[in-house]
Design a protein around this nucleic acid. Structure first.
Lengths: 193, 193
DNA sequence: TTCTCCATGTAAGTAGTTACATGATTGG
DNA sequence: CCAATCATGTAACTACTTACATGGAGAA
């Protein structure tokens, strides 16, 4: 027991989990994240490649050089030790923080500093962002459904969670808007017709 | 025009905005954030105090020593330049990223690696977290209502957004649960009665 | 007197991003 | 031949957290 699973950080588990789901190279991991996880976790190549090395040194993945023509590439696969480590992490009853660090909500919080017209513009910008996010997430839903058909149901669930809470944000914003518009009606904003 | 507003980062605007809302010391800013913004933006004293200094050097806040007995304390107030800078930031039509970096959703994404029983436990843990968050947010709603009565409506709006999307998460999780429970019924989990 | 809260600040460390460097392959 | 994509990696920087240091004031 060398406790090879110690000292892994969240991004390492992300990499490990993506390899488990079939991403074989650092590049494929990056692409898969862009197509799925990126709405609630991002990762950059500068994290992925060192992470793959750490995982390999710990025996959680195995990589072998796999030339595509003369182009270098390493093909990774998860080991049984890797499976066990991933499961242990998923089962660990650690406290799960929830942090948004969202620039939009930060701005909105301070919107009382603006006049009604500018505040409305900010609110609308945040609504637009959520609408666009919903659309983007729905666009990748077919891919998630395909993944589900192959036995992985949770990527679809997390996608639906993303859609659901942007919809919830939209609803609350829309409920709030009339208050604003009513009060600013006297200002005769020009582009409402 | 020395362009004193250049080079401010988001945490600086948070500090500036909090001073505008009446937080007078670094300590009060920290406390106010804990009671309101913390669910979508956090900040530590190690950021607050240097930030206050930067803001003062730029003329966006003024601080004067205000002894409470012999206890040291600096009382800050926003300047008109500070008001203008805050408003300019709020009006700036920059792209607004939305990043969650949520450990719970990261784990859930990979939950297919678990057996049904453990996956259900993880799902329940995430549900519990959202329930607790809703309760915590509702607990500070009276404070936000008081703030609204004093003329700041947006802290309440952002609070309601927080509540709304945790409720949305709960709803999606609850819809998903039966799928899991049905499939794992044959496993005879022991502690369900 | 001791505990908790008020209050300010720094040093060291961790985590993450951006920008860059390199080079092969494919398709127009 | 040029652009886009595939593919791997590093250096430098920025951002943020944790842990610590300091000390007054009020309450038990």
């Amino acid at each position: 027991m060398t406790d090879s699973s110690a000292g892994l950080a969240s991004p390492d588990y992300l990499v490990l989990g993506m390899v488990r789901l079939g991403a074989r190279s650092g590049y494929e991991i990056k692409r898969m994240v862009e197509l799925s996880l990126r709405f609630f976790w991002t990762i950059s190549p500068a994290q992925i490649y060192p992470s793959l090395e750490r995982l390999e040194r710990s025996g959680l993945v195995v990589g072998r050089p796999e030339a595509l023509g003369r182009r270098r590439r390493r093909a990774f696969a998860i080991t049984s030790a890797g499976e066990a480590t991933l499961q242990a992490w998923l089962r660990k009853p650690e406290p799960i923080p929830f942090e948004l660090r969202d620039l939009g909500l930060l701005k909105l919080f301070f919107a009382d500093a603006l006049d009604k017209r500018d505040a409305l513009a900010l609110l609308r910008a945040i609504e637009r962002r959520s609408r666009e996010r919903v659309a983007a997430l729905q666009a990748i839903e077919p891919a998630a459904l395909a993944t589900e058909a192959q036995g992985a149901a949770y990527p679809l669930l997390t996608l639906q969670l993303g859609i659901a809470f942007h919809r919830a944000m939209l609803e609350v914003c829309r409920e709030f808007e009339p208050k604003l518009s009513a009060e600013s009606a006297g200002l005769r904003t020009d582009a409402t017709g």
